[in-house]
Design a protein around this nucleic acid. Structure first.
Length: 155
DNA sequence: CGTGGTACGGTTA
DNA sequence: TAACCGTACCACG
């Protein structure tokens, strides 16, 4: 199944199967019509902090990238980690983490927007403003829920 | 095959 | 400041 949901000036395209395994998520200018999993539209609307029961097709690989994806998935909603912190957890270099994020086929589900650079935001494809918007959304929701988690940037 | 280029970050001159 | 370099992977000869 496939469909898309609006997110600001962009659309989030998603393709998934009947077992809630997502094979592709992509930010596009023009949306295609079709269904979208409820948890995704609720996440984009700031109504939930979990994307369960969805899972990514690409998080199981027994490669360095696979380990990076699984590590990134453990970053809690509304928090961030640096490329370097993820790299140290996995036992590789920060640049490799950047490469894995760039090639992430299921952004949002594997929350690469929560991985930032030491001195700033880092990058995001296709547009850095999407990363900022996602972080703003999570920040807003976190405050609204009264979560006062001050332990950002902890490994 | 070899090579160059990455959504990084630390080290060195 | 700027120039290197490690590290995993891939596109392109």
């Amino acid at each position: 199944m496939e469909g898309s949901a609006r997110f600001g000036l962009w659309f989030v395209y998603i393709r998934w199967d009947s077992d809630n395994v997502v094979s592709r998520i992509r930010f596009v200018r023009q949306g295609v019509s079709g269904p979208v999993p409820l948890s995704l539209s609720q996440y984009l609307a700031g109504k939930t902090t979990t994307l369960s029961p969805l899972s990514s097709l690409h998080e199981q690989d027994d490669t360095v990238f696979g380990r990076i994806y699984r590590e990134v998935k453990t970053i809690p909603y509304g928090e961030t980690r640096t490329y370097k912190e993820i790299a140290e957890s996995v036992g590789t270099g920060a640049r490799v983490v950047g490469m894995a994020m760039k090639r992430n086929l299921t952004p949002i589900l594997i929350p690469c927007h929560r991985v930032v650079s030491t001195g700033g935001l880092g990058g995001y494809t296709p547009d850095i403003s999407i990363k900022q918007d996602l972080l703003n959304l999570e920040e807003r929701v976190r405050k609204r829920m009264g979560i006062t988690n001050s332990s950002l940037h902890l490994s």
